[in-house]
């Protein structure tokens, strides 16, 4: 029983981190209808900044710099690449982001080299014991910060003028533009927020029990892609639900791999994708996604 509780708590904590990443996919998709395949490289960039800066300026300023840096990089990609293609179709735009991701990831991975870079976080390897359940402090922090970040974002999305503009743009770009919504700002803003959330996620992907950031960290962002799709790629609630679902699925698959042969040999890695295919078969637009009409 404690084993199950431990798995669930750990699953929820990593699920919250996946939700942060998935939210990034959703925000960009809502404002520009693009699937941002460059998201993994934003995550890697944010984590890398924290890793190289924390020794000199301390952890918290470094985290701030990482979040700001990833946000700036996101906005830059939007400004330099996507804006030029505004006239292009969304399919083409999504494909362009793959090219952007290749370039950015190669460069950052080269800088990281073969190192494992610790992020200098304050939680270290301390754990909390609650009734026999062992949870790392970093995991609790991840859960807390992710929930806080997502709440702040959802509130901003609902009440600030930027959020309203973004929702308007997602609803109908042309009308929104006519009503005075600056589409450029909205989409640059969306990319920046996505970058910031990715940097935050990078932090929690690289702290205990993982020893630090390395070039493979960006694969975690790819796991959040199914999270976004399962939830419905245009639904913020869906990103949250999808992230948690995937975190828990993964934790259970790892936890029970000794009991079932099927779960062994890295089944946990593909469980998110399997879950996604099943969901897509039943609901092609995801659990919370808007159903598209007018399909022949």
């Amino acid at each position: 029983m404690t084993a199950l509780a431990e798995l669930l708590v750990n699953g929820l904590a990593s699920g919250a981190v996946y939700a942060l990443v998935a939210l990034g996919f959703v925000i960009v998709h809502r404002s520009t209808e693009v699937i941002n395949f460059a998201h993994p490289s934003l995550l890697l960039a944010g984590g890398y900044l924290v890793a190289v800066l924390h020794d000199d300026i301390g952890f918290w300023p470094a985290l701030g710099a990482g979040v700001a840096g990833a946000a700036a990089l996101g906005a830059l990609v939007e400004f330099v690449v996507l804006r030029r293609l505004r006239s292009g179709s969304h399919g083409t735009l999504s494909i362009v982001t793959i090219g952007v991701d290749i370039v950015l990831t190669v460069e950052i991975a080269r800088r990281i080299g073969a190192e494992v870079l610790p992020l200098g976080d304050p939680w270290g390897d301390r754990v909390v014991q609650v009734g026999g359940v062992t949870i790392a402090q970093a995991r609790i922090a991840a859960l807390g910060v992710a929930v806080a970040a997502i709440t702040v974002f959802l509130l901003a999305f609902k009440y600030t003028s930027w959020g309203v503009a973004m929702r308007a743009a997602a609803e109908d770009r042309a009308t929104a533009a006519l009503m005075g919504v600056r589409l450029g700002r909205v989409s640059a803003g969306a990319w920046a927020v996505a970058g910031a959330l990715a940097a935050l996620a990078a932090l929690f992907l690289c702290v205990f029990p993982t020893p630090g950031l390395d070039r493979a960290t960006s694969f975690a962002a790819l796991k959040a892609l199914p999270a976004a799709v399962i939830g419905g790629v245009d639904s913020t609630t869906g990103a949250l639900a999808g992230g948690l679902l995937i975190g828990v699925t993964e934790a259970l698959a790892v936890g029970y791999q000794d009991e079932a042969a099927l779960l062994r040999g890295g089944f946990a890695d593909i469980a998110p994708y399997l879950l996604m295919i099943v969901v897509l078969l039943i609901r092609p637009t995801g659990l919370f996604g808007t159903r598209e009409l007018a399909r022949a």
Partner: peptide, 28 residues
């Protein structure tokens, strides 16, 4: 790191490919 955090204090014996000097810069 995880075994230490769980309070599982046992000796480890590792293959030569399971250690790198870089690990000495990490919290473990």
């Amino acid at each position: 790191g995880v075994t230490a955090a769980m309070g599982l204090k046992v000796p480890f014996a590792a293959s030569n490919s399971a250690f790198a000097q870089q690990l000495l810069a990490t919290p473990v």
